[in-house]
Amino acid sequence: MVRRWRQALLTALCGVLIAAVKVGDGSPGSAALLLAAFLAIGFLLSPLAFPRTSGGSGDDRPVVYWRPGCPYCLRLRARLGPEAGRVRWVDIWQDPDAAATVRGITGGDETVPTVVIGGRGHVNPDPSWLRDQISPASR
């Protein structure tokens, strides 16, 4: 659990410390801006930036295996936009079976994002390709 939140919490803590120094220097405006920026980055690095895992293994939606703090996972999530809800998001740090699945697809390492569509694994696919695969017109 702590591992999933480590980067987000450290980023937020750094923001608080830097803002405190700025307030001490008499710059409350820049302190507020820096704190807001660090908190936003902390949110993006946290599991909260991704849709919650829902549905069971019988779900026929494509599966995206990800982990918190992964910039490629964040890029995929951002580029999918509202279409991100059309896939199942599985955090490999929270689900050991998912991590084993990713290692099986990638040849032993935990490279994410790994997407499984129709039983085939795709490592770090182009977001536009995935969007085309999950769009309603392609079904």
Results as ranks from 00 to 15, higher is better:
Met1Phe: 01
Met1Gln: 14
Val2Cys: 01
Val2Gly: 05
Arg4Gln: 15
Arg4Lys: 15
Trp5Ser: 06
Thr11Gln: 07
Ala12Ser: 10
Leu13Trp: 10
Cys14Phe: 13
Gly15Phe: 08
Gly15Ser: 08
Gly15Val: 07
Val16Lys: 08
Ile18Glu: 13
Val21Met: 05
Val23Pro: 04
Asp25Ala: 13
Gly29Thr: 13
Ser30Pro: 03
Ser30Met: 15
Ala31His: 01
Leu33Val: 14
Leu34Ala: 12
Leu34Lys: 02
Leu35Gly: 05
Ala37Gly: 12
Leu39Gly: 09
Ala40Thr: 14
Ile41Arg: 11
Gly42Pro: 07
Gly42Val: 09
Phe43Arg: 08
Phe43Gly: 03
Phe43His: 11
Leu44Val: 13
Leu44Gly: 10
Leu45Gln: 13
Leu45Phe: 08
Ser46Ile: 08
Ser46Pro: 07
Leu48Gly: 00
Ala49Ser: 14
Pro51Thr: 03
Arg52Ser: 14
Arg52Ala: 14
Ser57Arg: 15
Ser57Ala: 15
Gly58Val: 12
Asp60Lys: 12
Arg61Glu: 01
Pro62Met: 13
Val63Gly: 02
Val63Pro: 00
Val63Thr: 13
Val63Cys: 05
Val64Tyr: 00
Val64Gln: 00
Tyr65Arg: 03
Arg67Tyr: 00
Pro68Asn: 04
Pro68Trp: 04
Gly69Gln: 05
Pro71His: 11
Tyr72Gly: 00
Tyr72Val: 02
Leu76Cys: 04
Leu76His: 02
Leu76Ile: 02
Leu76Met: 11
Arg77His: 06
Arg77Gly: 01
Arg77Met: 08
Ala78Ser: 11
Arg79Cys: 03
Arg79Asp: 04
Leu80Ile: 13
Gly81Trp: 03
Pro82Trp: 04
Pro82Ala: 13
Pro82Thr: 11
Glu83His: 09
Glu83Ile: 10
Asp91Gln: 08
Asp91Phe: 02
Gln94Trp: 03
Asp95Tyr: 10
Asp95Trp: 07
Asp95Lys: 08
Pro96Arg: 14
Pro96Leu: 09
Asp97Asn: 12
Ala98Thr: 02
Ala100Lys: 15
Ala100Gln: 15
Gly104Thr: 08
Gly107Phe: 08
Gly108Pro: 11
Glu110Tyr: 01
Thr111Pro: 07
Val112Tyr: 05
Val112Gly: 06
Val112Ala: 05
Pro113Met: 03
Pro113Asn: 08
Pro113Ser: 06
Val116Asp: 00
Ile117Asp: 12
Arg120Asp: 06
Arg120Tyr: 04
Val123Cys: 01
Asn124Pro: 01
Pro125His: 04
Asp126Ile: 02
Asp126Val: 05
Ser128Thr: 15
Trp129Met: 06
Leu130Met: 09
Arg131Pro: 06
Ile134Glu: 04
Ser135Val: 14
Pro136Met: 12
Arg139Thr: 11
Arg139Cys: 11
